[in-house]
Write a protein that binds this DNA or RNA. Structure first.
Lengths: 233, 233
DNA sequence: AAGCCTACTTACAATATTGTCAATATGGCA
DNA sequence: TGCCATATTGACAATATTGTAAGTAGGCTT
């Protein structure tokens, strides 16, 4: 009768991974407030001090969760960027794909749930992303076209902010704005946004004589003013 | 000695307003988790059951907070739209101004903090915004150009999502992406984004023959496909 | 097979936080 | 001036949740 094993002893690595998985799943359902040690432990069939044993505190769990999400984002982005290779047209689509699967929403929630300290890991990941994107852009750029690193940083910023905003408020805003819901709608928005961005990239890639930085004629297609504004201060 | 009034008796309206102000201020400092009845009450020098008396529950307080923020957003947007009037160039700048002062961040936090029910008020506000924006666009549009309401809805969605993403992750992302911080940086980003959007609006305003709705040629400048994608499903 | 490391458990502590209830006093109003 | 509605208070209840401590047991090494 008592063939039920009283205890399952995992390796520390396995335990950590399973706990992170459970916490992630719970957060996906109930939002960041749903990460309660007792509940997460219950989902795994363990007692909640196990979580404290492996992560030190609830904050430690959230930190680990955030770090893992950041690494996942980085890996997906790197994969996407290298998959697109020189085919510039597809890069943006690949990048948007990297944010899919609730990853952006997870990161957004974690950013709100966290108390906001110890961003060392996240900072490193972000810098690596910016660096890689910039190298990609310089590789792709036709000779004679200088890519401003500020421009890369701004693009990374815009894409990230938009993806996050879309992830958090997507469902609510779409419903309230009267747009259809579901994955198709989000995908359609991403296509539209990618098109918008690609237009900017096309203009960057076009070499402009340095003296022609005047005002764009508003009636014709505004092709000048392609660079991002120089951030003063 | 005891000239200190033992009790200050406010009107119900005043009490509600003061409580909302205090909760708002506290949230601005400590995030959405900082809205604790005891702390908010302490800031006002009252006891925490007063809050429960006026708002029923903590959820009620957060609902009221959200509603007030939504109304504030609506008022600011309406003011901005009517201030810009027919001058299309400035509309986007005005709209971005409406999101300033931490309003977007407040709304974003509230969206995360709330349990997500009873969106009636917010839905009404959103619909009114969409309706007003659409009327503005139809007024401004040159004769012979039909403005698709789906396009308006998508634009409202994009602007809102981006403003929210910028509000939540702005500071963090800017720092991590290596962009300068401060109001100037945010303003520069808003200028750049407004420019991006204006380009889209310019293309919309250009009347297209209805038969030219085919596939865009990928190699040349993608000038077709200017409308937002039709959302299937 | 013995022993050790440590993952795991049970029980408990500590605290914070929302919410209830009866009593009080305050300002308007008759 | 006296009454009344209700804003406000203080004390208490209920519960949830993080964290601690000491002991137990599982599996790997020797």
């Amino acid at each position: 009768m008592a063939s039920v094993p009283k205890r399952i002893r995992r390796t520390a690595e396995d335990a950590r991974r399973q706990i992170l998985d459970a916490a992630e799943a719970r957060m996906a359902q109930t939002g960041p407030a749903g990460i309660r040690l007792q509940d997460v432990a219950a989902d795994l069939g363990i007692s909640h001090p196990v979580i404290l044993h492996h992560f030190g505190s609830r904050e430690g769990l959230i930190r680990a969760l955030t770090n893992r999400a950041m690494v996942e984002l980085k890996d997906k982005l790197m994969l996407a960027l290298h998959a697109a290779e020189v085919k510039t047209e597809n890069i943006l689509g690949e990048v948007f794909n990297a944010f899919r699967g609730g990853l952006a929403q997870r990161l957004a929630w974690l950013a709100v749930a966290g108390t906001g300290e110890d961003h060392a890991q996240q900072d490193m990941v972000t810098l690596e992303i910016v660096r890689t994107v910039h190298e990609m852009r310089m590789t792709v750029a036709p000779p004679g076209v200088a890519i401003d690193e500020k421009d890369t940083k701004s693009i990374v910023y815009l894409v990230t902010a938009t993806a996050f905003g879309d992830a958090i408020f997507g469902a609510q805003l779409r419903k309230r704005a009267g747009l259809p819901e579901g994955a198709a709608a989000s995908s359609a928005f991403q296509l539209w946004f990618a098109e918008l961005l690609r237009r900017h990239l096309d203009e960057i890639a076009r070499p402009v004589p340095p003296s022609a930085a005047g005002e764009p004629s508003p009636t014709t297609t505004p092709r000048a003013k392609s660079r991002l504004p120089e951030n003063s201060a």
